[in-house]
């Protein structure tokens, strides 16, 4: 091989950089599911827990487009068979009124930082 003394160290550096996320997290704690504080007065959310867990961000994204751009305000819940106002602060957080123990706990654990509440303020 021509220039092996340049190519091989180059490849090694590339491989190290490329796999950075893996070895950076080597010593870190394994992911543990978080304990969330659930609303006491209700058994179900608007949709099944599994659906809400995986899809709530997409649902909220869809809500904001449909509310702001299409002019619809109510969402039909398949689970509850009832219409609800599409509002993060008035509908979601009416039940999930403990942001720190519910929203933040999971978002912190998964290292995401949604900026919804920067503008949509909840009661202090």
């Amino acid at each position: 091989m021509y220039n092996a003394k340049y190519i091989i160290p180059g490849l090694i550096i590339f491989a190290l950089l490329f796999t950075f996320p893996f070895w950076y997290n080597l010593g870190a704690d394994a992911y543990e599911p978080v304990e969330l504080e659930l609303p006491e007065d209700y058994d179900d959310c608007l949709e099944s827990t599994e659906y809400m867990r995986t899809e709530h961000m997409k649902m909220l994204d869809e809500w904001r487009d449909i509310y702001v751009r299409d002019g619809y305000q109510m969402y039909w819940s398949e689970l509850k068979e009832q219409y609800f106002l599409m509002s993060l602060t008035k509908t979601c957080m009416d039940c999930h009124d403990n942001k720190e123990e519910f929203c933040d706990r999971c978002h912190d654990q998964t290292a995401v930082d949604p900026y919804c509440w920067d503008c949509h303020h909840i009661e202090p």
Binding site: G71, Q73, Y83
Partner: peptide
């Protein structure tokens, strides 16, 4: 069945 979204009736 009911459509997924609707307007507030009093709007």
């Amino acid at each position: 069945g009911p459509s997924r979204y609707k307007r507030i009736e009093e709007g």
